[in-house]
């Protein structure tokens, strides 16, 4: 069914080495990976195994020490800072463990922000925000500041913000890590819905084995290497 979908993300021999003084930490070690458009991938592994590093490199927030990353078939190696920013803005949505909403802005304004960075006009922004709020049933919370929202609600707003410019890829780094199981479940259902109904490619980093069930493939990392890739049969 999805076998014919094209590769939206491809990593070719990606290695990431952090230098701390005289020490070197190999966070990713020769990782090659292909992710198809519309896939739901779970990345699992012990703490320090390189999950966040992998996600940041796919999200063009970080650059590999060696190897190459292709997004939508385009190598990010030679892209300028500006082009990388545009790529993040238009193609990638980030959801962080700590929600990371801008505290001075209301939920609505947080969702609007990436559209402003894109230069959308006000009318267009308003429509798009309304659409997103409706899709995630956030209408009642639109005018609250992050401080006035629960963790689960903040994370939902963060997802809404990630959707602002209709990205193809949703990168989630332990999105339920700070939530109780009920809110966590709701967030996961939201993400799954986006994957299924909007066809978004989701890459989910998690510790929680119970979240495997949402994914089509589970990638296991240890010491910066992929040690196992398994299909869940979803």
């Amino acid at each position: 069914m999805k076998a014919k979908a094209y590769e939206i993300v491809r990593l070719k021999n990606v290695t990431k080495v952090y230098k701390i003084g005289y020490y070197e930490v190999v966070a990713l070690n020769d990782v090659s990976l292909e992710i198809k458009d519309g896939e739901f991938i779970a990345v699992m592994g012990p703490s320090g195994s390189g999950k966040s590093t992998l996600l940041n490199i796919i999200g063009c927030l970080d650059k590999p020490t060696s190897g190459e990353v292709f997004i939508n078939g385009v190598s990010t190696k030679k892209l300028s800072e500006k082009k990388l920013t545009e790529l993040r803005r238009d193609t990638i949505g980030f959801v962080f463990q700590q929600y990371n909403l801008i505290p001075t802005l209301t939920a609505r304004e947080n969702i609007e922000l990436p559209m402003i960075f894109k230069g959308m006009d006000e009318r267009e922004r308003e429509n798009r925000v309304r659409e997103i709020l409706e899709m995630l049933t956030l209408e009642n919370l639109a005018d609250r500041k992050p401080m006035e929202l629960s963790g689960g609600q903040q994370q939902k707003v963060a997802i809404a913000r990630a959707l602002a410019n209709e990205p193809k890829i949703l990168l989630c780094d332990e999105p339920t890590g700070n939530l109780d199981s009920r809110s966590g479940h709701e967030i996961m259902e939201t993400i799954k819905m986006l994957n299924r109904e909007e066809g978004m490619t989701v890459i989910l980093v998690t510790h929680d084995e119970s979240l495997k069930k949402y994914a089509e493939r589970v990638i296991r990392l240890r010491d910066g290497r992929i040690v196992d890739v398994s299909s869940t049969g979803n």
Binding site: G59, E81, T85, P103, A164
Partner: peptide, 16 residues
């Protein structure tokens, strides 16, 4: 700093 990082991540240019 963190806020700046978030804005850059979601698509703010240096100039913004």
């Amino acid at each position: 700093t963190k806020e700046i990082g978030v804005m850059r991540a979601i698509g703010a240019f240096r100039e913004s």
